[in-house]
Design a binder for these strands. Sequence first.
DNA 1: TTCCAGGCGTATC
DNA 2: GATACGCATGGA
Length: 266
Amino acid sequence: MDYYKKGSDIVLRQKDLDLGQTLDCGQAFRWEKAGDDTYTGFFLRKALTVSQKDDIFTFRDTTEEEFLGIWADYFDLMRDYGELKERFSEDETMRKACGYAPGIRLLRQDAFECAVSFVISQNNNIPRIKGIIGRLCERFGGFPEKEQLYGMDADDFAFLRAGFRGKYLADLCSRLESGETDIDAISALPTDEARKELMKVKGIGPKVADCIMLFGMDKCDAFPKDVWIKRVMAEYYPQGMPLCTKGCEGIAQQYLFHYIRTGVKT
DNA sequence: TTCCAGGCGTATC
DNA sequence: GATACGCATGGA
């Protein structure tokens, strides 16, 4: 990873990354297009404006410490996606999916934020998910720390207009407060055990649990099966995902999800 | 008006 | 364990 400082910016050359494909594909909900090839968004309480010109990326108003300590991990810059896609492409459908949106990457996000976000995401659409999370962040001046949500019941979440999901958020918060659910402890568990723990929370089923693990706990073998992926599986992978995706099924899932949702009509 | 949205809880078999 | 059904809200 070669980068250099330019004024108050960090400039970086990076292959296999497209901001639009990565920031606007339904894995994160706090990024907005701020101009041609420019996006503004947040991770935890850090704001960032980043722009792309071909394979040159400019992280604006960012210190070297912040870039290395936060954004390099967030954008998963240390992982070789070229090699990964080459491996995936042994499978014909995966080859097409990787070719359709070759700039997709996994965003390595925060587990608590993912828990809240993907509880909200169920039976919902992306624009409305963004709206609900926007109202949450507006109320708390940024995405809340989990402690700020302690003690909130379903009615306290009414301002979100999240519908029936408000009571799920309340259960999540009360479990975090009591310690019945411990995000850090769950992160340290193997995927299958972590999934079981997460699903003890009302409103977290198999799909949401796998989203939390994949996007927020760095578990690339987590494999969220939403309606779109179920369609792909039924049509192309009735026997399960191909061997070439083993261990990284979640990343493969990102390419497939985007491909089937926006790329092909079946 | 009706249908749908990155599902899940509950009831029922 | 598999399968139906309701669920809050808002946009198409």
